[in-house]
Every structure is written in C-alpha cells, then in structure tokens.
C-alpha cells in the first residue's frame, strides 16, 4: 500500500499533476509513511525530468510542470519532517533570488526546485531582490552558496554589485557565488567574479554540487 502511494506520488510529479501530488503527499502522511521516503521519491522524479531536459528529450514546459507539482507537495512533507524534528541530510544552504530591477521568476524557481531535489536547503528570496536583501539573507541563513538570476542584460550588472558588497562585508570567502539567466555568458560571470555559471536550471543544480565538492 505504502509503496503504491509513493509510486503514485512520483507518477503525479512526472505527469505534472500538482493537485494530485499534494493530495498524495497528504495521504502518505495519513498512512504514516516516512516523510523522508516521500521526499526521496519526489526529488527522484524532479531529477528524472531535469535529466530528460538535459538530454534534450524534454522541454521547458516539462520542467515548469514538474517543478510546480513538486512545489505543491513539498511543503506538506517538509512541515511533517520539521514537526517530527527529523534531521534531513543537506548538501548545503543556498540563498536564491532574481536581482533588483528584474521580475523574471521561472528560471529562478526551477533552479530552486532542482537544488532542493539535489539535496540542498534552499531559501528563495523571490524576484526584484535588492543587494542589501541578498547580503542580509547570506548572513541570516549562513549560506554556502548565493545564486543570483538576471534575465536581462540591463539587470545582470546587479550581480556584480552584490559581489562587491560581499567583498566589502568580508563575506566573499565564506560563500560561493553562482549566477544564471538568459543574457549571461561564461565570460560575463568570470568578469564579475562569480564562482560559477550555467545556462540551464538542471546544470545550475549540478554546478552547486561541484562548487561545494559534493
């Protein structure tokens, strides 16, 4: 029975059924299924979609659909994990956001989902995030990685600004910085002093692992 629920939960994410995924997450908890096991099947499903995207077999809407289904079920499971005081192994803490002047959220949200699927603890600051808010969150959550997204060429320089403040606040050596977004290039990322760049959301999640040698 519990296996069937977990299989269906995975299937719901693979078929981008948000409501179904949330209902199955609730059902799993009602049936006393270990929330860590539920979390595992969910992250496995999202990784599967991410890998399919990486191989060019799936498209952006597939990532959006899987991410949405995951996001609808994830808080239900996470709440139970917290309630039980269970310790979930984490690869590290990542603070994520879209820079000031930019309201594009899809890429950033997918990176958040895929980072969570990889096993990171993710704090999503949202969009139009000022440099000050990034710095505050890096301090507050003791971030291992700061991930900034900027879709537009005109907003990308904000990433440079945040890195400059990290240096000023003596935080630069304590946090890895990864950047992404449609207008960015490897050259730009190096130029602003970021530690890493990847053009895709699944690539970004793998990059985070590499940055922390995990």
């Amino acid at each position: 029975m519990s296996n069937e629920i977990l299989e269906n939960l995975k299937k719901a994410i693979l078929e981008y059924e948000s409501e179904k995924a949330a209902n199955l997450a609730r059902e799993a908890l009602e049936k006393k299924i270990d929330p860590a096991k539920a979390l595992n099947v969910m992250t496995e499903a999202v990784r599967q979609v991410g890998d399919g995207f990486g191989r060019g077999e799936l498209w952006l809407p597939d990532l959006v659909g899987a991410a949405d289904a995951m996001q609808s079920a994830m808080p239900i499971i996470q709440k139970e994990i917290e309630r039980k005081g269970m310790k979930v192994e984490t690869l590290g803490v990542v603070v994520v956001g879209t820079v000031f002047g930019d309201i594009h959220s899809i890429g950033k949200t997918m990176v958040c989902t895929l980072l969570a699927a990889e096993g990171f603890t993710v704090y999503d600051l949202g969009v139009n995030v000022t440099a000050e808010k990034f710095i505050e969150a890096v301090k507050k959550y003791k971030a291992d990685i700061l991930a900034m997204s900027a879709l537009m060429t005109m907003t990308a320089p904000e990433q440079r600004k945040v890195i400059a403040i990290l240096k000023k606040e003596n935080l630069r050596d304590k946090v890895k910085v990864m950047v992404g977004g449609g207008s960015l290039t490897e050259e730009f990322a190096k130029n602003i002093g970021a530690d890493g760049y990847d053009p895709t959301a699944p690539g970004g999640a793998k990059l985070a692992r590499r940055l922390l040698n995990k």
Binding site: W59, L60, P61, P199, T200
Partner: peptide, 9 residues
Amino acid sequence: GYSEQVLIP
C-alpha cells in the same frame, strides 16, 4: 526561443 532552445516543444 530563449538562449538554450525553443520555449515550448
């Protein structure tokens, strides 16, 4: 499209 591929299949 966007920088990597088309936006929908």
